[in-house]
């Protein structure tokens, strides 16, 4: 059987909010390593990879590897019924066709269980190699969210250029154009820093619609990491403290 208890249940609620707009149905892979997911959006332009490591749960048991197919919108409906302070436990039998979410209030005076029907989902699993990227940018996740939101009111795509001077986000639309440059800044608190690690300057263009969707993960982490190489998907990573990560991969636009 599979059983995973998370005292900070709000984390699971936030994880789901970070992926449900991008992906409709997804297979969760349960193993001794943890609770993981890899899924693409319906247009196959982006991919999300999630890992919640087993040692991040207060209790974790997985007798054999299992795949649990879920409709993320329905899973979200159930997790929204958990209070932000609730402890959440997920349970499933090896042969079962349901997963149970149990919510316990912090005072243990309210216990709820919600049973979600599992589904068979045909999904491709892609092998993602470890790559050395030409540029890595770490910046406040709220700042990245703000930039993506602001630029999407001007244009549909953003060109991200990383150089030793900083990271520049540019867009063009019918009403005009916009450029936002964030310079490396290590003189402030760690969570407010912008740090650029550069092997070589890189410029890529992406659809803002997807980047905006990725920023739904902002509540999970104070900083976001962008990794870019020429003609490769950008990796947008949010680290979940002591547990794992949500990583998004977005294919670049084809240059004219």
């Amino acid at each position: 059987m599979f059983e995973a208890r998370l005292v900070q249940g709000s984390l699971l609620k936030k994880v789901l909010e970070s992926i449900k707009d991008l992906v409709t149905d997804a297979n969760f892979d349960c193993s001794n390593n943890g609770f993981a997911l890899q899924a693409m959006d319906s247009s196959h332009v982006s991919l999300v990879a999630l890992l919640l490591r087993s040692d991040g749960f207060e209790h974790y048991r997985c007798d054999r590897n299992m795949t649990m197919g879920m409709n993320l919108s329905n899973m979200s409906k159930m997790l929204k019924c958990a209070g932000n302070e609730d402890i959440i436990t997920m349970k499933a039998d090896d042969t079962g066709d349901v997963v149970t979410f149990m919510f316990e209030s912090p005072d243990q005076d309210k216990i709820s269980d919600f049973e979600l029907k599992l589904m068979d989902i045909d999904s491709e699993h892609l092998g993602i190699p470890d790559t050395e990227y030409a540029a890595t940018v770490k910046m406040p996740s709220s700042e990245f969210m703000r930039i993506c939101r602001d630029l999407s009111s001007i244009g549909d795509t953003v060109t991200i250029s990383v150089s030793k001077d900083g990271v520049k986000f540019s867009t063009t639309g019918d009403i005009g154009q916009a450029n936002i440059t964030c310079r490396q800044n290590t003189s402030v608190d760690k969570e407010e820093q912008t740090i650029i690690e550069l092997q070589e300057p890189v410029t890529l263009t992406f659809a803002l619609r997807y980047l905006n969707s990725f920023t739904k993960a902002t509540p999970l982490a104070p900083t976001v990491q962008l990794q870019m190489s020429k003609e490769l998907p950008v990796v947008v990573q949010y680290l979940i403290a002591d547990m794992g990560y949500v990583r998004y991969y977005l294919a670049p636009k084809i240059e004219d």
Binding site: V45, E124, H125, G127, P129, P233, Y249, A251, I254
Partner: peptide, 14 residues
Amino acid sequence: SPDQHDITSFFSQR
């Protein structure tokens, strides 16, 4: 859309 790469073209099928 046609001006957009398919993400699967960058990664190997497992």
